[in-house]
Every structure is written in C-alpha cells, then in structure tokens.
C-alpha cells in the first residue's frame, strides 16, 4: 500500500501537485492563492484546518511538537514539528488562541523530511497544534506553552 502511494506521489510531484490540479481545470492559480491566504484569518481551528488542509478531521498521534513549557516572550516562541510518518506532503502549525490561529503551512517535496523548525508569535497561553497530511489522512500533535508576555498586540 505504501509503495503504491509512493508511485502516485512521484507522478504528481514530478509535474507539481498544483500544476496537475490546474491542468485538470480543477483550480485556477488565483483560486489556489485565495484558498491559501484564506486560511490566514480569524476563525475556529476547525474552519481554519478545512481551508488550509481540506479537512478538519485529524487523528492524534505520529506528530511531535517541541516547544518550551514557558515562553517569557510570546513574540518569539521556537517550535519544531516532527512526524514519524512516511509520505508527509503538508504540515500546518497553529497557535490555538491566536486571533488568526494558522501561523504557517508547508508543502514538502519528495525526499523532504517531515521536520520543520521555526519561531512563532503567541498572543497568550495555549496549545501549539501541528497537523500533518500523509496520503489522505491528517494527523496531529500538540503542546501547551505558557506565555508570560503576549507577542501579537502592541
């Protein structure tokens, strides 16, 4: 099953995932862009996930979120997301209590490992939630970070 998925991935990625969709007339480049940007707005986690990854149904597990227990400065919170799954094509990192929860979304090329580190802003204490896409499934991990001084407002 896994090897079949690999072959499919190879085929789609060779042409570019988006390129295939555009070629098939499913999406115009404008739609793709609007959809991506649309996820960076206010909304519930479920709404944001639907826009960003196409579904809000995710299974807990296979995703590790590494971040400090306490962040004194919410403007700079280091986070690493790592998955033990094969064939991860997308990773989304959300700060649950931020007014715009989605901080970033990553599209991984073939051979790119499901491991991303960055630094995010957190308005207040909440979970950092990471959702990864592997095949048709979404998997998630989370970690609570206590924020002493919020890093979003002025």
């Amino acid at each position: 099953m896994n090897s079949k998925r690999r072959v499919l991935l190879k085929g789609t990625l060779a042409a570019g995932t988006v390129g295939v969709a555009v070629g098939a007339g499913v999406l115009t480049p404008r739609n793709v862009l609007a959809e991506t940007r649309g996820a960076f707005q206010e909304g519930s986690m479920d709404e944001i996930l639907k826009t960003a990854l196409g579904s809000d149904r995710h299974e807990a597990g296979h995703v590790r979120v590494e971040a400090p227990n306490i962040a004194e400065n919410g403007a700079v919170v280091p986070v690493t997301v790592e998955s033990d799954l094969d064939g991860v094509t997308e990773i989304a990192i959300l700060a649950a209590a931020n007014s715009t929860p989605l901080t970033s979304r990553y599209e991984l090329g073939e051979g790119t490992r499901p491991k991303i580190s960055t630094r995010i802003k957190m308005g207040e204490t909440s979970d950092i939630v990471a959702v990864v896409k592997s095949g048709d499934g979404l998997y998630s991990g989370r970690k609570e970070v206590k924020v002493t001084v919020g890093g979003c407002g002025g």
């Binding site: 960076f40 700079v76 970033s104």
Partner: peptide, 13 residues
C-alpha cells in the same frame, strides 16, 4: 521542489 512555506503574520520577526 524541496519546500514551500506559506506564512502569515504569526511568524516571528
């Protein structure tokens, strides 16, 4: 293509 990152304003300065 190795990686495309889509960022919002929630990424640190």
């Amino acid at each position: 293509h190795v990686l495309t990152a889509h960022w919002g304003p929630g990424i640190s300065r």
